[in-house]
Amino acid sequence: MLAVTKLFNKSENMAAIPVSDTRNWLRSVAERRDRHAFEQLYGYFAPKIKGYMLRQGADDASADDLAQETMVQIWRKANHYDPQKAAVSTWVFSVARNLQIDRMRKHKFYEVALNGDTSSNVENLQHNEQLEDCPDTDRLRKLIGELPEEQMDVVQLAFFEGLSHSEVSCRLSIPVGTVKSRLRLAFGKLKLGMGEQI
């Protein structure tokens, strides 16, 4: 079985920058077109986005270009970000992921609006009222850190190396059913830990 490279650093790299800082920077970019705040965002996210693109199989120059292009999109789409609905990192991840699919996989990717207001039913209105300022990223980070290694490996291969279930199955020499059950187990722990009835 092939071991998954551990580029993921569980303790040293996190919380160097408070989540509230990234949110304030992005808000300043959206509301005031604040270039200084944008440079802060660049300093924090661009190297991580480049790391993501490298893991997806881009060479160094392409990963650099894709990270730059993602940052340009972050500047241009900053007003699409709603701090009540998602963490900044979630939104940045989706921008980077969509660009990666467009440029490297060269196909479209349909994305559902996750802000709950695409439907006017009562259930959604109540749900929106319950949302607080930002998802609890500290709690989620802790839960991710507690995932067993074999589940974390499968999660990382999917999110970072862009492998489908069957590709993860080939890479780790385990059945597709096992890949899916590890993903379900990992996700089940996150759902439970985040206290969501989902």
Binding site: K48, Y52, R141, V155, L190
Partner: peptide, 9 residues
């Protein structure tokens, strides 16, 4: 959110 958190780390 999981994707975002993995990216952050």
């Amino acid at each position: 959110d999981l994707g975002g958190e993995l990216l952050s780390e």
